[in-house]
């Protein structure tokens, strides 16, 4: 598929160097985060609640500035160069699905005809062509999330940030959306940072897993996942998948015990 980490001498697509975040109340959300992401990678960031996974995404998106360290790009992203999918669908309830998906193009003042064409194409790709005129409240949770993904991709971003996007969905819907997301990734060659607390989901999707340790949030392990693409249901019963899940789970359990962690609880 030509995707996966691309070892080269060029600067990485995205690099975090010693990024730390301390809030005014003294809470240290991130401590010395350094990681490089290659173009076209599908990176899973796995960890318990409150370990700073989402904070990393917010830094990369430019919504938060780091207290220390910096974030470097091989080419700084233009407006619309980053798409983001939140844990909630985060749709405008007063706008039809097509208008929600067109929002990033409207904000960038893309001509209406061109924008409508792109929205229609993308809605077809995520299977919502028949619901362009619907309002968000008329859709199921899974369909709303599809609309949210369509909106994130409508600007043809080079980087897609996903913050536990499927955590609130039922298992069957989640697996279907996992497969559809992999298909879109295979077609469109964007880079993905995918935050999840599910080891199984992270391993199923990603070519690399970053395991986070909590309080303060830091990187505990960086595990390559050498499972072949394209991936499908068969992988879920594959021994290599089980082994990879076990490896990431052990790293996660180890992260919870690692120093700097104030209690044995995972809940935040």
């Amino acid at each position: 598929m030509g995707q996966g980490p691309a070892p080269s001498l060029e600067p990485p697509f995205l690099e975090l160097r010693g990024v730390s975040k301390r809030y005014p109340n003294g809470t240290v959300a991130l401590s010395d985060i350094s990681m490089a992401v290659g173009e076209g990678e599908f990176l899973a960031i796995v960890g318990a609640s409150g370990c700073g996974k989402s904070t990393i995404l917010r830094h990369v998106a430019g919504l938060v500035a780091p207290s220390a360290g910096d974030i470097r790009w091989s080419r700084p992203p233009a407006a619309g160069g980053i798409g983001m999918v939140f844990q909630e669908p985060t749709l405008m309830p007063w706008a039809r699905i097509q208008d929600n998906v067109r929002l990033p193009l409207d904000l960038a003042k893309v001509p209406r005809v061109e924008a409508d064409a792109r929205v229609a194409a993308l809605l077809a790709q995520v299977g919502l062509a028949d619901f362009a005129q619907a309002y968000p409240r008329e859709l199921s949770g899974g369909m709303k999330m599809r609309a949210s993904i369509a909106r994130a991709l409508v600007t043809r971003p080079r980087l897609l940030l996903m913050d536990e996007p499927f955590a609130a969905l039922d298992e069957i819907t989640r697996q279907k959306l996992n497969d559809d997301l992999l298909a879109l990734w295979g077609e469109q060659c964007f880079t993905v940072l995918f935050v999840t607390h599910s080891v199984y989901e992270g391993v199923y999707l990603a070519n690399r897993a970053i395991v986070m340790a909590p309080r303060p949030g830091r990187i505990h392990a960086d595990i390559p996942l050498d499972l072949p693409y394209p991936r499908d249901e068969a992988l879920r019963t594959d021994a290599r998948y089980a082994a990879a899940c076990r490896q990431v789970s052990l790293a996660l359990a180890d992260a919870m015990r690692s120093p700097g962690h104030s209690s044995g609880e995972t809940a935040a």
Binding site: A61, L63, A79, M84, F86, T90, L103, A108
Partner: peptide, 12 residues
């Protein structure tokens, strides 16, 4: 919605 505010900021 705070998430929508973030989204509007993301898209400048």
């Amino acid at each position: 919605d705070a998430g929508l505010r973030d989204l509007f900021r993301l898209y400048g």
